[in-house]
Structure formats: C-alpha cells, structure tokens
Computed example of a mutant assay.
Amino acid sequence: MTTEVVQKHVFISGRVQGVGFRYFIQQNAADLNLKGWAKNLADGRVEVVISGNLDKIEQMITKLKEGPSFARVHDLEVNSESTDDFSGFSIRY
C-alpha cells in the first residue's frame, strides 16, 4: 500500500447536480479518510479537490465514476495538483 499523499482536482460532468452528488462525495471522503472540498459549478459540473493517500484517492475516483444512484456521470477530468493542507472535507457554495 502506498502512503504517498497526493492531491487531485476533478471535474465531473453529466447529471451530477440535484442528485446528492456532493453529499455522496463527502460521505465517501470520510469513509476513505480523504480531505478536500466539492462544489457545484454554474456550467452544471461538480468540482472536487481531494487530498490523501494515493491508494484511497484511486478508490475515490472509481466511486466518482459511478456516483450516487440518481446521477449519470458522462465525463471525469482528473488533474494532479500541489498538496494543500485541508483540515477535513467540506461542501462549498
């Protein structure tokens, strides 16, 4: 298991707003001990920054591709970022 801490900046498109996607992300982040934030964008996408163990982030990205039951993910854009120091996971407005 890799212990390297990394950060990913993810943009999720599809039917991802109004379906509980940010809360789905927040719950899975807590389960995987990841930090960061998620917010809805005006263009209909959800933006997410996740920070933590690389193995856990890979698990999260797999979950993001599926989303909650009412979501329909069409595309996932994943970018690497420099690591910020987050105290937890939050939803931004």
Rank of each mutant, 00 (worst) to 15 (best):
I57P: 02
V46Q: 10
W37Y: 15
G20K: 06
N33S: 12
Q59V: 09
R15T: 12
Q7E: 15
M60I: 04
Q7K: 07
H9N: 08
A38M: 07
G18N: 06
D43Q: 02
I25N: 02
A29H: 03
A42S: 12
A42C: 07
M60S: 01
L54K: 11
E58V: 06
Q26S: 13
L34N: 02
Y23C: 10
Q59T: 13
V49W: 03
K35C: 10
K8N: 02
G52P: 06
R45D: 08
I57M: 08
D43W: 06
R45Y: 04
N28I: 13
G36N: 05
Q7W: 10
G14D: 11
I50T: 03
E47V: 11
Q17M: 11
I61F: 10
Q27Y: 15
I61E: 15
V49P: 01
V48S: 05
Q17G: 13
Q27C: 08
F11M: 08
K8D: 02
I25M: 06
Q59K: 15
Q27G: 09
N40W: 09
I61S: 06
F11H: 11
D31I: 06
D31M: 07
A42Q: 09
S51I: 07
V16M: 04
S13H: 07
G20S: 08
V10P: 01
R45I: 08
E47T: 09
K39G: 09
V48T: 01
R22S: 11
H9E: 09
L32E: 08
Q17L: 10
V46T: 12
V48I: 13
G14Q: 09
L32R: 05
L41Y: 04
E47Q: 14
R15V: 14
G18M: 11
V10H: 01
E47H: 14
K35Y: 12
L54R: 12
A30F: 14
R22G: 11
L54A: 12
L32M: 12
F11L: 13
L54W: 00
L54C: 03
K35V: 09
I25P: 02
Y23G: 11
Q59R: 11
Q26M: 14
L41D: 10
K56Q: 15
S13Q: 10
A30N: 15
R15Q: 14
F11N: 05
F21G: 04
S51G: 07
I57A: 07
D43G: 05
I50G: 00
D43S: 07
K35L: 14
R45K: 15
R15A: 07
I61A: 02
L34F: 11
E58Q: 11
V48E: 01
M60T: 05
V16W: 03
N33M: 06
Q26L: 15
Q27V: 13
V10D: 00
G14I: 09
V49M: 11
N53Q: 14
Y23W: 13
L41I: 05
L41G: 05
D55G: 10
L54P: 00
